[in-house]
Design a binder for these strands. Structure first.
Lengths: 169, 169
DNA sequence: TTGGAATGTCAACAAGGCTGACGTATATTA
DNA sequence: TAATATACGTCAGCCTTGTTGACATTCCAA
């Protein structure tokens, strides 16, 4: 809660001009945000889609294909194309579920972990530089605004790992 | 400058875990950020690329094709495909430069302005809600971190409109 | 046992990136 | 003035990553 006491006083930060600035900040910053991993990826034969898959499999080892579909918000056909190349290249392995044998639980292999490491090192380096330059309280604000910008569904994914449907692994 | 006085004390905000959270926040928030305009666009035959073009032409009326290429960071072939449909549909018009007749200066038509308005209204509404929920100081931090996350080149575009090469219009 | 869920896969398509090559004004410079 | 460089457009072809639709398999649960 942002302090509703100053009604009319400092609502200046809601100016259209300020909002436009925020919009462009998102646009330009997102470019920077993806630039470093993109450079690494284009040397291999991978793209951003592979990065996302690898990231979330690393975050929640043993997650199912269905979970991943929900998080990434793409169709299974699209995800499957990406996963297949990751299987073929030995970066990800799928184990048939013990309880439910229809499910495939996804894990990074050593090779997969090492790619993940390379990608996230690069991305974290930029994030760390930005955090350091901005300072802790700015970071706090950064996270607060981004969180408020998400759809409710995404916010749940972001905050709780996941809660609604199924518990990964 | 973030206050270098607390060395070692509150550097906790630079944790890998915190950075990972920031990374995912960017990912999920960007989805929300583009969701509303995307919904409008898919009803017409346009995509995000059209949105970006329209946005920046609106921001800097009379900007040249070359300027737009720099800002958007795409190839002229890619931009041209988008611009052509915008011309054909009467959303954007190009005027031959007075000083340099090789240049085309881009302007939104009334129709273009009305699409731009619809798109940016939607996007601003979400941004406004996020800003309001987060409060002014969070917004300050949000902008600071995003700015620090940009490449130097993009930061120049973001801050000064543009300075290095050519003055738009 | 039967319906539906979870998954995989084939095929076709579209948007929007990219490269390379070429053409045409127009400007600038030697 | 002639040569070169710039701004822009366009044709052709390629790639990634998204989409829909259809269909098969396996398995859970009522």
């Amino acid at each position: 809660m942002p302090d509703p006491s100053n009604s009319g006083e400092s609502l200046l930060f809601l100016t259209d001009e300020n909002l436009r600035k925020g919009i462009e900040a998102m646009f330009f910053a997102y470019r920077g945000f993806t630039a470093d991993p993109d450079r690494i990826l284009e040397d291999m034969d991978y793209g951003r889609a592979h990065h996302r898959a690898v990231h979330f499999i690393n975050r929640s080892p043993g997650t199912t294909v269905g979970n991943l579909l929900t998080i990434l918000g793409v169709t299974k056909q699209s995800l499957n194309r990406v996963l297949r190349t990751l299987f073929d290249d030995g970066l990800v392995e799928a184990r048939v579920g013990k309880q439910d044998k229809r499910e495939r639980h996804l894990y990074l292999t050593d090779k997969g972990r090492s790619l993940e490491r390379a990608l996230s090192d690069a991305q974290r380096a930029r994030m760390r530089a930005a955090y350091r330059a901005a300072g802790p309280s700015a970071v706090q604000g950064f996270r607060t605004v981004l969180e408020a910008m998400m759809d409710a569904e995404q916010r749940r994914q972001y905050q709780g790992q996941n809660q609604g449907s199924k518990e990964g692994t």
